[in-house]
Design a protein around this nucleic acid. Structure first.
Lengths: 297, 297
DNA sequence: CATTCTTACGTACTGCGTAAGAATG
DNA sequence: CATTCTTACGCAGTACGTAAGAATG
């Protein structure tokens, strides 16, 4: 009985198929099939019920799966406990939203590489709602997203906050500066689809404010470009777009009440604890800062 | 990191050398050396201190060893829990004393084979004192011996009792039948070296009896043959030698106080628990019976 | 100088990937 | 009929054993 066999079993069950497990383990269905068969013949039991098309565990298989999880978790823990960080070899997929990708993701990746030079990092930039699903499907190991979802299957640890302010093209509100939320009725609101957009949507409701005209996009860059060209009013991290407000490309609006800060959290599946992930979250907390975007020099 | 590597580490530490570990794992020093090196390079740490001739663990190595023990124990437990007994494949060395070997060992082995047809049994017949040392050296997995030692490193579970009685060649005591322990002064006592011999030695002391002439042997068969030829008085399991007393080859002596029963226990290292061993002990308890020796038909 | 671990090298074998086959819904 | 797992077969890379080398006390 080898770890490879247990790993195959684990991912076949977790991802619900030999195909998926094979992709996860960077090999072929054939190899997975054989590892599972080896396991079965070694133990002299049937682990899977082959009568149906979808894999289902037998009773013994269920027992084995539970123990396999423990063995694999323990192996990982031992490796993380004992091995020197310089040699620690693993691949990890981090999911982030666009804003993070544009600001402090490079710093985070740099820090990780510094501490764990042999860890292979892949970053998946997507909307937070999709990242959540990818977490569940084990397509990513860690997601750093606005704190908009409260699913008990995930561990959530705050890594930082961002202060958003309303912005628009300077001449858009030239005649009458909006001062209160209500004043925004006159304009089209440009909102992101799944991150702060959701949080602010709820906040609007609580404040009794219903924007009459909205334009939703899944891309910050698109929102920014729309805003700069006068397509409406949007919110952006104050610190992040300071270079653009300074040179008058965008104007910052002073509207009361101010938009609440958005908390960013690092999320991962509760079961999938690991030293590496904890340590990455700590690094994220240290370098989470949405200031520097498009800064030159 | 594979189980093979951890196993190598485990046995190198446990047996104190690559050579010994290799023998235990049925391979060569070279292979063990490489497995350990693989482990070290995988983890990026030094597990062993190579500056001295005797292997000694580094600090990290110590940690790893502790975890390796747990992982291996867990694997074994999972295998025993999940695998079907028919296919369960392992080798186990059982140490027994001569008397057991001559009486119920064949039954025990038969029972084990019946339950675990794929388990390879080796039996090591030796004096109980040696069996104890072999247990410590991990040369045997289980010893079934008279209950003469109380070492806390071993788990001891009773499997049966045997009633010994004094016996001699019929004409040896023809003129004056000995009735009390003291009467044995006149004769040479033939005693085994390490099993009941030790227990009865202590018992003699407590009873204030000091046999003037003793002949010690490590072989029951030798004692028997000496006794049958009139070399002295010895003790044997009553039930076991009934065929010989019945036909008058040996005479049973009725001496007070009677020899205390000898309890046989199954001993194994406390750490080395396992379902298989527990189950073998249960089988031993069921078939421990010193009756049938040299029975024909 | 004997013992113990490491290194070097050729071999054997395990495990893998490709591609075709069987089974299920 | 499409999807999913199994089987067959040839290949490659891993892990092994032999034997010689280095180091230690």
């Amino acid at each position: 009985m080898t770890f490879k066999q247990l790993e195959a079993l684990y991912w076949v069950v977790t991802l619900g198929g030999f195909q998926h497990a094979a992709r996860k383990l960077h090999t072929t269905q054939s190899a997975i099939s054989k590892r599972v068969q080896e396991l079965e013949s070694f133990l002299g039991i049937a682990v899977f019920d082959r009568n149906h098309r979808s894999v289902s565990l037998t009773e013994k298989g269920e027992e084995l799966f539970i123990q396999a999880k423990k063995l694999l978790a323990m192996r990982l823990q031992v490796i993380e406990q004992v091995s020197s960080p310089e040699i620690f070899n693993r691949e990890i997929v981090i999911g982030v939203t666009e804003l993070t990708a544009l600001t402090w993701l490079p710093r985070l990746i740099g820090l990780i590489q510094q501490h764990y030079p042999r860890v292979n990092i892949e970053s998946d930039v997507d909307m937070s709602i999709n990242l959540q699903e990818k977490l569940l499907a084990d397509e990513i190991d860690l997601a750093i997203v606005p704190d908009a979802f409260h699913d008990p299957r995930f561990s959530r640890q705050p890594v930082g906050k961002v202060k958003n302010v309303w912005m628009c093209k300077p001449d858009l509100c030239a005649e009458a500066q909006p001062r209160r939320l209500y004043d925004l009725h006159k304009y089209r609101l440009l909102m992101d689809k799944s991150g702060p957009g959701i949080i602010y949507g709820r906040w609007f409701e609580e404040a009794g404010f219903t924007p009459p005209r909205k334009l939703i996009s899944n891309s910050i860059v698109a929102l920014l470009s729309l805003t700069v060209s006068g397509g409406g009013i949007s919110y952006f991290p104050e610190s992040c777009l300071e270079p653009l407000t300074r040179i008058g490309i965008l104007q910052q609006l002073d509207i009361a009440p101010a938009l609440p800060d958005i908390t960013y959290v690092a999320m991962h599946k509760v079961q999938r604890h690991s030293e590496l992930i904890s340590s990455i979250i700590m690094l994220a907390q240290n370098c989470c800062d949405f200031k520097t975007i498009l800064q030159r020099g």
